[in-house]
């Protein structure tokens, strides 16, 4: 079988690494060889965070090569755009519409790409692109920190893995006192995607 390559990207502080950990755990629980490689920026909060995850019969390198990523999950629009070179023409992209402008944008040194320009660049490179404001959804359910699990929920709609496997992995990584909130967040994200007709395609 061909390896399935994922990228989970975002901004330090958004819970991206944990989302990648869940992806890697789910891969193992679903019976694949599963590998993950993180690159964290120098900053603890505010830097770009990139996690490569690969599922397969036997995975070699823990990171994907350019043009071979099948699924990109981006916690922030600019971070999705940063990964264009990695996307395969058949790839699927899910991104959070909530923008976190880098400090260089606020101080006027650079400018944030226009929303429609960003979206059409992703659409021209990938096969399917979905987006919604997961940060606003997280705030609505009472905790902005749940944004990562909402996005994992959305992403899960594309994978042929049973819901209880995702739930087992989530329970392993989130603190017990936030378990209920996170499981709710997972299902909110998943249902948002399942509404889309093309997801099943």
């Amino acid at each position: 079988m061909k390896d399935i390559n994922f990228l989970v990207v975002g901004v330090g502080g958004q819970g991206t690494v944990l989302a990648g950990d869940i992806m890697a755990e789910v891969g193992m629980l679903a019976g694949y060889d599963s590998k993950k490689s993180d690159v964290l920026g120098l900053a603890i909060r505010g830097g770009s965070v990139v996690s490569h995850i690969r599922w397969g019969e036997k995975v070699d390198a823990p990171m994907s090569m350019r043009g071979t990523v099948d699924y990109l999950l981006a916690f922030e629009p600019l971070e999705a755009l940063r990964q264009l070179a990695f996307l395969s023409p058949e790839s699927t992209v899910v991104y959070n519409e909530y923008k976190i402008p880098p400090v260089s944008v606020s101080s006027g040194l650079t400018s944030y790409p226009e929303e429609n320009e960003l979206k059409s660049a992703l659409e021209a490179t990938a096969q399917r692109v979905y987006s919604f404001n997961a940060t606003d959804t997280a705030v609505e359910i009472g905790n902005v920190k749940a944004v990562n699990i909402i996005l994992i929920g959305a992403f899960s709609a594309f994978m042929d893995v049973k819901v209880d496997v995702w739930e087992t992995a989530i329970k392993k990584f989130v603190p017990a006192k936030y378990e209920e909130l996170n499981l709710k967040a997972f299902h909110i994200g998943r249902e948002l995607m399942e509404k889309e007709e093309s997801v099943k395609a």
Partner: peptide, 14 residues
């Protein structure tokens, strides 16, 4: 698009 968006704002360490 890959070449066009190569130089998007980076997230320098803060």
């Amino acid at each position: 698009e890959v070449a066009k968006f190569k130089d998007i704002p980076s997230r320098s360490a803060v």
